[in-house]
Amino acid sequence: MNKTLSNKEEMIRLVEDYLGEDHDREVVKEIRQYMDECPECRIYIDSVKDTIKLYRVTQFESSIPDDVSDRLFKKLNLNREA
């Protein structure tokens, strides 16, 4: 029978375990096995991973408005190259 995500404490532990760091091979194996037996956990973890990914995608769109850039160069007393 499949496991289910039964309470908040389990949700928090799951995220800590799965998205944490410094796991040795045995722990990773144990987590993967747990996830295989708990489809809800897999969906939940995937949604947390998606959240991070979405913010990363938007992060790459670095831009600076022209007026902000103009004031920066003025403040630095530098000429902006054409």
Partner: peptide, 16 residues
């Protein structure tokens, strides 16, 4: 000019 070029190339990421 070199200083301006450095500012220009990094200001967008730093502002973000």
């Amino acid at each position: 000019k070199a200083m301006s070029a450095l500012v220009d190339s990094h200001s967008a990421r730093i502002y973000t």
